[in-house]
Nucleic acid binder design. Structure first.
Lengths: 404, 404
DNA sequence: TATTTATTGTCAAGTCATTTAACATTATCT
DNA sequence: AGATAATGTTAAATGACTTGACAATAAATA
C-alpha cells in the first residue's frame, strides 16, 4: 500500500526508531534481539547497537539470560527496576488500583466499591485512599512512583485531560481530572476512556497481542467498546468512538438513558440483565434466585451465578443478551473487519453462555469473508484489562516523553 | 495523547519529513509556505529550505506567484508538468477513465457501460480501449503517462494486487489485476477498493478536506463504505472493512445475494430501489413511470428522475431507502465518530430526497454528542470521486516510491 | 574433540538530514 | 523613506545512521 502522510501530524516524532525499539522491547513476549529489531525497522545492526547502548546506559532496557557480553542472539527486555507506575480504573461502581513495574508486572492491587455519580471530589478522595492503601501494602513510598494512568467510563477530551459530556458521569463534565491529579501527586498523569484502555491492555499483555486491529467490548453495567485500529488507539473526531452500547437493536425496545429507543445497553447491559431477571421472577418464572431472600438488590452477578448453577431462566436471559450483543458486534465486524473481538467487563465472566449466542449472531449477520477469520473471545486479563491499559499508558508517557 | 509505536511498521520510512512535505503541498488548497511546513513538522526553516530546494531541483514542486501576507510568504504547489496519471474506476456497470496531471487536475475523461460479471478479460480489454480513447482525445501518447491507479468494487488483497473473494465480481477472484496491467503498460499500478478511493478522493480534493476521520458511503447498484481513520485509509485485518451494505437492517427482510437476511444493500441499494419501484407499479400504485413505455429495464436512475419530477411513489421509495441507509450509518457513527459522512455513488444524485431521511435516522439512532458535530452531505466530486482517488494513489506511488 | 560455518553483535570512519546562528529579502506600517 | 516583523537562505556543526571490516558465539561437520 501507498501510505498517506497526514498534513497535520499531531506530534513531530524525533527519534522514531528509538521510540519504536522501546515499544518492540516492551511488548514482544520473550524479548527481542538486536537483529530482529534491525530487520523490523529496516536499519542496520550497527545502528541498532548504537540505540541499544544508549538505552542500556540509561537503564531503560537490559539483556536477558545472564549477561553474555557478546554472543549469538541476546534478547532484550525492559528493565523492570526503571520505575513504578500506578494504573487506576474507575468504573461506574468500582475503583481498581494497580501498582506495577515498567515491564507491566503487577506488584500490588486493590479494589473498592464506589458510585461514580457522587461526582469527582469524593471519588478522587477514594482514589487517593486506594493509592495509599496499595503503596502501604507494597511497602513503597509515593516518591518512588514516577507515573500514573487513569481510565474513566466516558468520552475523553485528550488534550484537555477531562471528560466531555459523559452520559453516565454526572458532575464530572469538564472537571480537570488529569491536571488535578498531576498537581496532587507531582507526577505525569494520562487520562483515557476505560474501554480504550481495555483494548490497549489486551493488546499489550493479553488476547490482542500481535493484532493490528482489535475491538474490546466492555460489558459491565453499561456497554462500550475500545478500538485499536492500524495499531493505534482510535478515538474518533470528538473522542466518542466505540459507543456500541447506543446502537439501536430493537425499534420497539425500551427508552435508554441516552434518550433514544432500543439501545443495546438498555437491552443487554448488566443493569438490563438484572432488571429483566427481576421482572421475570416477579412475573412468576421459575428460578433458584429468591428476591426476598437477597439482602441486597439483585445484580447481574447474581444472574451469572445462577446461570452457572444451572438456572434456566438466568441462562436464557444471558443467552438473549449475548445474541443482542452479537447483533451489534456484527455491525462492528462488517464495518471494521477486526482480527479479534475481545469481550471484557463484569458480564463477560459468564463466558460461553454469553459468547456462543454472540458468535451465532455475528455469523448470521456479517459477511463470511469478514467473520470467518475472526476470533471472538473473553478477555485474558479479565477485570484487570483497563487497569493494565492504564499502566501501559502511564509507562509510555515517561518512556517516550523525554528522549535525549 | 501518548502514541503507541507499532512493533511492525509495514514500511520503514526514510525521509519522513520529505514525504510529509510533498503531501502537504499536494493537498493543502492554495499552497503552503516554507514556514507553515516548518511549524507543522516541528523542524527549522533552514531544514525546510534544504528539502524544498531538493524538490524544486527535481521538478516536483514549484513556487506560486500570487503571494500575500505580512511578508514575503512564498506558497508552494505541486508542479503539474511533473507527469501524467491515469485513474480508472471500475464499477458494477461502468468504467470511468481519467487522465490527470500530478496536481490532480483532470485533463480528459471518458465513461463506458460494461458488466463486471463478464470477468477480467473482456473488462480489462474495455479498459484498454478506454485508455487509448482518452489519450487520443487529449493528444497524448501512452509513453507520457507515468503511473496508473485503479479501483474495483470488491475487497482487495493489497500486497497481492488482486481481489479477495468478492461478493459481486464473479471470475475475478485471485486474478492478478495489478500485475497484469503493470506488465501491459510498463508503469506502476495501484489497485484499491472503489469506496476507499472515493473516501480518498473526497479527502484530497472534495468534501473531506482537513478531516482526519471520514466515511464515504457509496450508494450505487450496491452499497459500500470507504473509511479514512486517523488520516489513513482503513482496510481492516483482511481488507474488507467498510461492508456497510451487509449490515442487517430488517430481521424479516429479503435474502441478500451474500446469503444473509435483510442486508442494507438488499433494501436500499440501487437495484433494490429499482425492484421496489417495479413491484409497486405492478401492484397498481400510481406513478408517472410506465413500465411498458420504457425501451430498457427500469433502473434506479429512472426512479430518481421521476422523484425530481414530483412522482410521489418514487419520492417515497427513495425516502425509505434514505431512512434505512441512515439506520446503518447511525451504527457507523456510533462506532467511528467521524467528522463527516460523504454520500456518493449513482443514487446520491437524488440529493436531499435521500439525505434528509438519512439525517433523521442518524439523529434518532445515535448519541447526540456524536451526531450533532457531524456533517452528512453528498459527494463534492460526484461520480468522479473514486476515479480521483485512483489518481491520488497513482501519483502518491511515483512521488513517494523512489525518493533519493 | 577440534574445526568450520552461519549468525549475530561491535567498532571506526563516513554520509547526510537537520540544527544553529548569522544574514538577506520582502510586505506592511508609520 | 525608514522601521519593523515576518519569512527565507547560507555555512558550519551535530548526530543518527550506514558502510565495511572485524569479533564472538552456537550449531554443524569432520
Amino acid at each position: 500500500m501507498i501510505p498517506i502522510y497526514l498534513p497535520n501530524p499531531s506530534i513531530s516524532i524525533k527519534n522514531i526508531n528509538k521510540h519504536t525499539i522501546i515499544d518492540m522491547i516492551r511488548f514482544i513476549p520473550g524479548g527481542v534481539s538486536r537483529i530482529e529489531l534491525s530487520q523490523a525497522l529496516g536499519i542496520t545492526r550497527a545502528g541498532v547497537t548504537t540505540i541499544i547502548n544508549d538505552l542500556l546506559a540509561g537503564g531503560v532496557v537490559r539483556e536477558m539470560n545472564g549477561s553474555h557480553g557478546r554472543s549469538r542472539r541476546v534478547a532484550l527486555e525492559i528493565n523492570p527496576q526503571m520505575g513504578l507506575a500506578l494504573g487506576i480504573d474507575i468504573g461506574a461502581t468500582h475503583i481498581s488500583t494497580y501498582l506495577a513495574d515498567f515491564s507491566g508486572r503487577v506488584i500490588q492491587e486493590s479494589e473498592m466499591r464506589i458510585h461514580i455519580d457522587q461526582g469527582p471530589l469524593p471519588v478522587l478522595a477514594a482514589v487517593d485512599e486506594q493509592i495509599h492503601h496499595v503503596l502501604d501494602l507494597a511497602g513503597v513510598p509515593l516518591s518512588r512512583v514516577s507515573t500514573m494512568g487513569i481510565g474513566v467510563p466516558g468520552p475523553i477530551n485528550i488534550d484537555a485531560g477531562m471528560v466531555d459530556t459523559p452520559p453516565i458521569m454526572p458532575g464530572w463534565n469538564r472537571y480537570p481530572i488529569r491536571d488535578e491529579l498531576q498537581a496532587r501527586y507531582g507526577i505525569p498523569v494520562t487520562l483515557n476512556n476505560d474501554a480504550e484502555l481495555g483494548a490497549l491492555g489486551e493488546w499489550a499483555y493479553g488476547a490482542g497481542r500481535r493484532h493490528d486491529n482489535l475491538a474490546f467490548v466492555k460489558v459491565g453495567s453499561g456497554i462500550g467498546a475500545g478500538l485499536l485500529l492500524n495499531g493505534q488507539i482510535y478515538r474518533g473526531s470528538t473522542g466518542s468512538a466505540g459507543e456500541i452500547g447506543h446502537i439501536t437493536i430493537d425499534d420497539n425496545g425500551p427508552r435508554c438513558t441516552c434518550g433514544n429507543i432500543g439501545c443495546l445497553e438498555s437491552l443487554a447491559g448488566g443493569i438490563a440483565i438484572a432488571q429483566t431477571m427481576k421482572k421475570e421472577i416477579r412475573r412468576g418464572q421459575k428460578s433458584i434466585l429468591d428476591l426476598n431472600a437477597l439482602t441486597e438488590d439483585l445484580s447481574y452477578e447474581h444472574v451469572i451465578d445462577a446461570a452457572f448453577k444451572g438456572d434456566l431462566l438466568a441462562q436464557n436471559i444471558i443467552n438473549d443478551a449475548g445474541y443482542r450483543l452479537g447483533t451489534a458486534v456484527a455491525s462492528l465486524v462488517n464495518l471494521f473487519n477486526p482480527g479479534i473481538v475481545i469481550v471484557g467487563g463484569g458480564v463477560s465472566v459468564a463466558g460461553d453462555i454469553l459468547l456462543e449466542p454472540m458468535r451465532k449472531a455475528v455469523r448470521d449477520r456479517s459477511l463470511a469473508a469478514t467473520s470467518s477469520p475472526l476470533t471472538i473471545m473473553t478477555s485474558v486479563l479479565g477485570k484487570r484489562a483497563p487497569g493494565m491499559g492504564a499502566v501501559v499508558q502511564a509507562v509510555s508517557q515517561v518512556l517516550h516523553r523525554q528522549l535525549a
